[in-house]
Write a protein that binds this DNA or RNA. Structure first.
Lengths: 364, 364
DNA sequence: TTCTCCATAGTAAACGCTTACTATTTCTAG
DNA sequence: CTAGAAATAGTAAGCGTTTACTATGGAGAA
């Protein structure tokens, strides 16, 4: 009876749903409990028995049913990550970090995308709760809509009540007392540093382009931008700030509009590298030289930054590291509680990387 | 494990692992069956009852346990995708297509990465089998090691026996009779077309750089390359073919070596856009102008291709579409059986996109 | 020799949900 | 009025594992 695995049909078996632990037990002539124990190895099983069991397992091509296992109490060994878009390098690199660290810690990784839809984000958190993931990592800036914050806070509590953890990655806290962990990067500091660099090169009229309005990432970068201006005593000029979106397309089209208006400026701060790429293209199209005529900087230091010509001066964000830390923190035993305590919130630094897209402004 | 509430959390204790359907039933004063039915909506439930149930659901923050649900027979509504690397744009765009189509069809998406390790790939297929995903999509070129093929074929059969489907995306068949579905792109045709384009511009000595040896993608691209050469009666010169890897780094370093050797050629075919980017950098570093001195082409038409200067002439592969089709096919009812039949294998076309990196060779 | 104590193995009770059967009502048609 | 068909609910049998209890030999202790 240990012989015939299953009566496989002509070429490929029909709807049989694969071997169960009971099949293995029968094939090996032991009880299911023994099989379970041999497989998990957390209980003594005689060597001969174990070998017989493993043989049956291979013969039958048995793999445990993860759902039954999860249901019976073992943990799911899965972490969920929610990002905007799988193909956006900013998120892709964070996802890579998450995926790598998760697999290093023996976890699977459930990756989902919101396509920038807040409600979908909320729904995805619930989906992950359904999946009983060990943690859910929420990546990227967040809307500051209070209703949204409240709803997310509820989810954080529900997750915590179920023994899981909500990790905020690169976004602001949901408020004190809400059970989350956080890993962020110094968004404001990077913006300050690169703006200050521009100023140190002699720029005074700097355009800020991109990033959705009412969005935490935009707010921080803009805060750093303004702080640098203030520190050097340069007046803020609202007409120089052009919020909108994070894509390359936005950078391109908005820059064209700006150029059409004939505004007065000597440098442009792209809200991220993609926006900067679009800006560069618009400039190139008009025959404006970078950096001789206009200087341009970006943010994130995504690979494309060094492919652009001129190579883009930008702010480096350790994206992959951010992802890794998120799962480390999530899986660590530290109690979650976003607050002032440093155990459950971690900030990684940013720094500017100087390449070829900035020079002192042209003397008029 | 009902008892497992951790004593760790002073602030928001209320432990317990979340509400179950029984809690909802009790709160609403009905049986669990009724709750289940109200939730799935596949059976009549009186309006008043239903409303009471939904109220309890919200009050308790209940979400179904996906594992219990899966175990009880409902499908898992999950598709798995196995790629090399989340941050590689080639894979990222395919993953985006998969993710979008899956979510359009109400599925979650389990994304995992092999980091180029064959054994890990095999293990990941098993992991997805454990998860009972509705389908597993295997993306990217494959090794042609026969042992590996046999092992993967076994897994395809096991998956089929469990009612799931293995979809091969951009890789060759596992052999006739192995139950898989396939979606591919015209790899060889694209390589032929772009090589022919180079030849039509007057190039005769064309370097081929990149792509792992003994890898299906490399084989197809090289096949197209050779076919174009043959068609125009140009002799194949083995010294012009430099296999190796797919990364940008490989393109850069190998190109430097080639330049050091002072080989004779007028154009370079990068095995993919990333390799081409590396090649471009090596060329730029030596002050060699593209396309005036040397022409360069790539493959895939990943976004970076149009950021490079000169903009890269390359072969467009509809990556996202490939991913979408993979899940469409996977979730369709067509019987899986890779063979000549067209029902279960789909090929999307490729075409060259001409930009600025090619011109006729310099007259000596 | 008899009694304990391990090393092993088996039994059966969850885990949380779906769904085939049943059991009530309430209509509707005859 | 009454039989039969909805419309609604409830009961309970799984689904495939894990794991707390039990059970059974022997080995070593007394």
């Amino acid at each position: 009876m240990t012989e015939k695995s299953s009566p496989t049909d002509p070429l490929h078996a029909r709807g049989g749903s694969g071997a169960t632990i009971a099949d293995v037990a029968q094939a090996a002539g032991v009880s299911v409990a023994t099989v379970s124990r041999a497989l998990s190895g957390n209980y003594p099983v005689a060597k001969a028995t174990r070998e017989r069991i493993f043989r049956s397992v291979t013969d039958l091509g048995y793999v445990a049913n993860a759902h039954a296992r999860a249901l019976a109490g073992a943990t799911t060994r899965t972490v969920g990550i929610i990002i905007n878009d799988v193909a956006d390098p900013f998120f892709a690199y964070i996802a890579r970090g998450v995926e790598r660290q998760a697999s290093a810690e023996g976890r699977m990784c459930l990756i989902t995308a919101t396509h920038g839809d807040k409600d979908r984000e909320l729904a995805l958190v619930d989906l992950m709760r359904e999946q009983r993931t060990d943690a859910v990592i929420l990546v990227g800036g967040a809307s500051d809509d209070p209703r949204y914050r409240k709803q997310m806070a509820d989810r954080a509590r529900a997750l915590a009540a179920a023994g899981s953890t909500l990790v905020l990655c690169g976004r602001p806290s949901l408020g004190t007392g809400v059970p989350t962990k956080m890993v962020t990067y110094d968004n404001e500091g990077g913006a300050f540093a690169i703006t200050d660099y521009l100023i140190s090169q002699g720029h005074r009229r700097i355009l800020y382009v991109g990033g959705p309005r009412d969005f935490s990432t935009t707010a921080s970068r803009l805060a750093g931008f303004y702080r640098a201006l203030d520190a050097r005593g340069i007046e803020r000029d609202p007409s120089l700030v052009h919020e909108g979106a994070f894509g390359r397309g936005f950078g391109y089209s908005r820059m064209r509009e700006i150029l059409d208006q004939g505004m007065d400026f000597t440098a442009v701060f792209g809200a991220n590298d993609l926006v900067a790429a679009g800006i560069l293209e618009a400039l190139e199209e008009r025959g404006i030289r970078v950096p001789q005529d206009i200087s341009v900087v970006g943010y994130d230091d995504v690979p494309v930054a060094s492919e652009l010509r001129p190579r883009l001066t930008t702010v480096r964000v350790p994206l992959e590291e951010l992802g890794r830390e998120a799962v480390r923190l999530a899986l660590s035993q530290s109690p979650h509680d976003a607050g002032a305590s440093s155990d459950n919130t971690l900030t990684v630094g940013t720094h500017i990387v100087i390449r070829d897209s900035v020079s002192p402004p042209k003397k008029p």
